[in-house]
C-alpha cells in the first residue's frame, strides 16, 4: 500500500499559512491534495478536498505526553482513505497556538494512520515582522520553529534588512537545521515544501548530503571546519546556556561508535528526556560497519536504519543533533562520548 505524504503546516495566526494554502490549492500542478484546516476560510477549491476539523488532543492512559495524538486527525485520515482515487498529499494546518508535537506523533503512534500515510515534513511559516514580538510571549512560536524541517521566513518585504537578520539569527538559535526560505506573500516553489521526505531515513542522506559537515554556520564567530576535538561542543555549551531554553545541540565524534552502547544510551536519553527533546537526527559511524547508520526521532519515538555505504576516501565521522527544551549539553556530550569504541 502506498503511503500518502502528509505535510504539517504550522505558524502563528497571520503569518501567511492561508496564503500558502491558497497557493497550493490554486497552482496548476496537476496533483490532488487534501487540506485539513480548522475552519472553512476563503480557500480556492478545485479538484482538491478541504476538510474542516476541530483539534482534539487525546492523551493516552499512560499519561505519556509523547503518546498524545490528534483524535480528529485519526478520523479525518480514516475518512480520506475510504475515498476512491489516490491523493498526492495531505496538508494539515494547525492553529496558531498549537504545539506541533501531537500532530507529528499521530503519524507514528496510530497504526492505521501509520499504514496509510507518512509524515513528510513540518513546515513553519514565520512572520518576519512579528516574530520577535511573539517569540518570548509563550512557548508556541519557539516550539513551532524548533519542530520545523522547513521554515518560510515570510513578509520579508515588510522589514528592514537589519531586522530580517535579527529574526533569522533568532530562528537559527532555535533551529539551525531547518531549510529556511525568505519569502514574500508565502511565495515559494511547492517542491521546497511538499515531497521533502524529512522523516524518511533513506532520504536523510540524499536531502542533506552535507549533514556531517554543516551545523556550525550559525556560530558566526567560530570556525571549526578542521577541529580535531572529537567532542568539539565545548563552545556550544556556553553558547546555549544563556539563550532561551529552547534550542539545539549538536554532538560529533570522529571515533567509531559502539552500536550497543549507543542504542542503550539513546534509548535511555529518549525515555528520560523525550518530553523535552522535540526532534533528533543523526548519522553514525558504527564500528565495523560499512554503511552509515541513520536515525531520526520525534520526542520518544525513534527510528533507525542502515543507510548508504561510506565512500572510499570519505572521512568517517558521527553527528547527532537534538532540538528541544532545557537540553543539558554537558550530560549529552559526555554520554555520547562514552559510546565511542575504546
Amino acid at each position: 500500500m502506498s503511503q500518502v505524504p502528509v505535510t504539517v503546516l504550522t505558524g502563528y495566526l497571520g503569518a501567511g499559512k492561508t496564503t500558502l494554502l491558497n497557493r497550493i490549492l490554486t497552482e496548476n500542478h496537476g496533483r490532488k491534495y487534501a487540506v485539513v484546516i480548522n475552519e472553512f476560510g476563503e480557500l480556492g477549491i478545485d479538484n482538491d478536498i478541504v476538510v474542516g476539523t476541530d483539534e482534539e488532543i487525546f492523551e493516552m492512559n499512560n499519561g505519556c505526553i509523547c503518546c498524545t495524538v490528534r483524535g480528529d486527525l485519526i478520523r479525518v485520515i480514516g475518512g480520506l482513505a475510504k475515498r476512491p482515487g489516490t491523493l498526492d498529499g495531505i496538508i494539515v494546518e494547525t492553529t496558531g497556538l498549537a504545539d506541533p508535537g501531537p500532530v507529528a506523533q499521530t503519524f507514528f503512534q496510530d497504526d492505521e494512520v501509520r499504514t496509510r500515510t507518512r509524515l513528510d515534513a513540518i513546515v513553519t511559516v514565520v512572520d518576519a515582522r512579528h516574530f520577535l514580538l511573539h517569540v518570548d510571549d509563550g512557548v508556541e512560536a519557539r516550539e513551532q520553529a524548533a519542530f520545523a524541517d522547513v521554515i518560510l521566513l515570510n513578509k520579508t518585504d515588510l522589514v528592514s534588512p537589519e531586522e530580517l537578520a535579527r529574526v533569522e539569527a533568532r530562528l537559527r538559535q532555535i533551529n539551525p537545521y531547518a531549510r529556511l526560505h525568505r519569502t514574500q506573500k508565502s511565495a515559494v516553489a511547492l517542491a521546497e515544501i511538499l515531497g521533502r521526505h524529512a522523516f524518511d531515513l533513506k532520504r536523510i542522506l540524499e536531502i542533506e548530503p552535507d549533514f556531517l559537515e554543516q551545523g556550525h554556520h550559525h556560530l558566526h564567530d567560530h570556525d571549526h571546519e578542521h577541529c580535531d576535538d572529537p567532542t568539539h561542543d565545548h563552545h556550544h555549551d556556553s553558547h546555549h546556556q544563556h539563550l532561551e531554553n529552547i534550542g539545539s545541540i549538536s554532538l560529533t565524534s570522529d571515533k567509531p561508535i559502539d552500536e550497543q552502547k549507543f542504542q542503550r544510551w539513546i534509548s535511555t536519553i529518549l525515555r528520560e528526556f523525550g518530553t523535552d527533546i522535540f526532534r533528533s537526527k543523526g548519522i553514525l559511524d558504527i564500528s565495523g560497519a560499512s554503511k552509515k547508520y541513520v536515525f531520526q526521532g520525534v520526542h520518544m519515538m525513534m527510528d533507525g536504519d542502515w543507510g548508504n555505504l561510506w565512500k572510499d576516501g570519505e572521512s568517517r565521522m558521527s553527528k547527532l543533533v537534538f532540538i528541544g527544551r532545557k537540553l543539558d549539553a554537558e550530560q549529552l556530550r559526555r554520554g555520547f562520548a562514552a559510546c565511542a569504541t575504546r
Binding site: F58, E59, N61, G71
Partner: peptide, 8 residues
C-alpha cells in the same frame, strides 16, 4: 451515568 477511564 458516566464511567471514566482516561484515554480515547
Amino acid at each position: 451515568r458516566s464511567l471514566e477511564w482516561k484515554g480515547s
